[in-house]
């Protein structure tokens, strides 16, 4: 039987949650036995090759590209998991949600103390993904099946959840493994 496929992505995140996946140490060998990675920065596959059993989402949505990737994951994955505080609640990038978008641009490109921008231009190239008005947690954009909070969630948290799902067991994590920090 073909191994179930797992896809991962980092949206508005810092790759810390992906580091936490790698932090399962030598269990990664066991994981490779259990699953095959599809679209993911771990193997650098850019496009889905087919249907996936599980999609791991790091980061919330801060721009239109994040939204498209997230919708693509929803379309291709049976189970979608928000991994980390940014995916589940917006996280650090959502600190800008209390500031109007225009003010964020001005601070970043015009007023910030370290800004050198003699042309006084705010980047507006069509190649750049358009920023959303706010940073959105994933479940405000698509349906999410499981949430694994944490900044990042510990390797054990991610491991336990994956193993439970891959072996068709309920995801019941012990108390110490569900934390918001």
């Amino acid at each position: 039987m073909a191994k179930p496929k797992v896809a991962t992505t980092s949206l508005a995140g810092c790759f810390g949650c992906h580091m936490s996946v790698l932090d399962i140490d030598d269990r990664i060998l066991k994981l490779i036995e259990l699953v095959q990675f599809d679209k993911s920065p771990i193997d650098d596959i850019k496009k889905f090759t087919g249907r996936c059993a599980i999609g791991l989402i790091e980061g919330g949505c801060c721009n239109e590209e994040n939204v498209r990737v997230l919708q693509d994951f929803r379309a291709h994955c049976d189970i979608l998991i928000s991994v980390g505080d940014c995916a589940t609640m917006g996280g650090i990038p959502a600190l800008r949600n209390m500031v109007p978008l225009q003010e964020c641009y001005e601070e970043a490109y015009l007023k910030g103390p370290t800004v050198h921008n003699p042309a006084r231009l705010i980047p507006n190239d069509p190649e750049l993904p358009l920023l959303l008005d706010k940073v959105y947690p994933c479940d405000e954009v698509v349906k999410i099946d499981y949430h694994l909070p944490g900044c990042p969630p510990s390797a054990d948290t991610i491991w336990e959840a994956l193993v439970a799902l891959l072996t068709n067991k309920p995801v019941q994590l012990p108390y110490e493994l569900v934390k918001y920090d």
């Binding site: 569900v178 918001y180 920090d181």
Partner: peptide, 26 residues
């Protein structure tokens, strides 16, 4: 606005602890 990841109270916070006890993942 609860950013637990940098809150001094995290780990000792009663709101957070109740969320944990009641099984709130998000």
């Amino acid at each position: 606005n609860h950013f637990c990841m940098f809150c001094e109270k995290s780990g000792n916070c009663e709101l957070q602890a109740l969320a944990y006890r009641l099984g709130i993942a998000a």
